Computed example of a mutant assay.
Amino acid sequence: MRTPSDPTRSPLRSRARLRPGDAVSVRTLTPVTGPPLAVPDPGGAVHVQFRRFAGCPVCNLHLRSVARRHADIERAGVREVVLFHSPEEELREHVAHLPFPVVADPGKELYAEFGVEAHRRALLDPRGWPGIVRGVLAGAAELLRGRGRLPAASQPGGRIGLPADFLIAPDGRILAVKYGEHIDDQWSVDELLAHAAGRGVPARLSP
């Protein structure tokens, strides 16, 4: 399956939410930097997380926490893969520094396949507001240091996406899943590691 990348396609209707024990089909994804990769990965478990748009302050803050502990995640036998619904050329400028693959899905094909939704509660739920404030302040600090970029003013894929996390076994079975209820509702690194340990994720067969 080719990397989803066509923003001119009509929006896809999300399928039913996936649950632990469900299986996902194999596809090859091409990150915005780096070589193609398989999901599921026969070499080990994969943590696939769905984010929002390139430059999203809450997403950037969360991914920095993941990047800081990327070595811990790899030692737990898990490969990190992140999806955004922004075009590849725009996304690359925001994520090139990250130590794990980031995939552009502007047509939201995989979002639909995995049942990942957009909803007004992403921004309106008060539980997400502290994360928005932290993300905006952290982004402003980066800009003052001459780092980072502001997100594009226009977001064809919208700004109300909800995050989602999937831990997927080498055979395609979903080991654990979380569908976020607001913009800042995702697994922390500690929660990801706990899921991996609790489900007996072995060391990876290859780097």
Results as ranks from 00 to 15, higher is better:
4 P>M: 06
8 T>M: 03
21 G>L: 09
21 G>D: 08
23 A>N: 09
28 T>W: 07
35 P>W: 06
36 P>E: 15
40 P>L: 12
43 G>C: 13
47 H>M: 04
54 A>G: 14
58 V>W: 00
61 L>V: 11
61 L>C: 05
66 V>D: 00
66 V>I: 11
67 A>E: 02
68 R>Y: 00
68 R>P: 00
69 R>K: 07
70 H>I: 06
71 A>T: 12
79 R>M: 06
82 V>F: 05
83 L>S: 09
83 L>W: 12
94 H>G: 04
96 A>E: 08
96 A>G: 04
97 H>Q: 13
98 L>V: 08
100 F>Y: 11
102 V>F: 01
105 D>C: 12
109 E>W: 07
110 L>I: 12
125 D>C: 05
128 G>Q: 04
131 G>Q: 02
145 R>V: 03
145 R>H: 11
148 G>T: 05
150 L>M: 10
150 L>Y: 03
151 P>C: 01
154 S>T: 10
154 S>Q: 15
155 Q>A: 05
157 G>C: 13
158 G>H: 09
159 R>F: 10
163 P>Q: 02
164 A>C: 02
168 I>F: 08
173 R>M: 01
173 R>Y: 01
177 V>M: 02
184 D>L: 01
190 D>K: 07
195 H>W: 15
196 A>C: 10
201 V>L: 10
201 V>N: 09
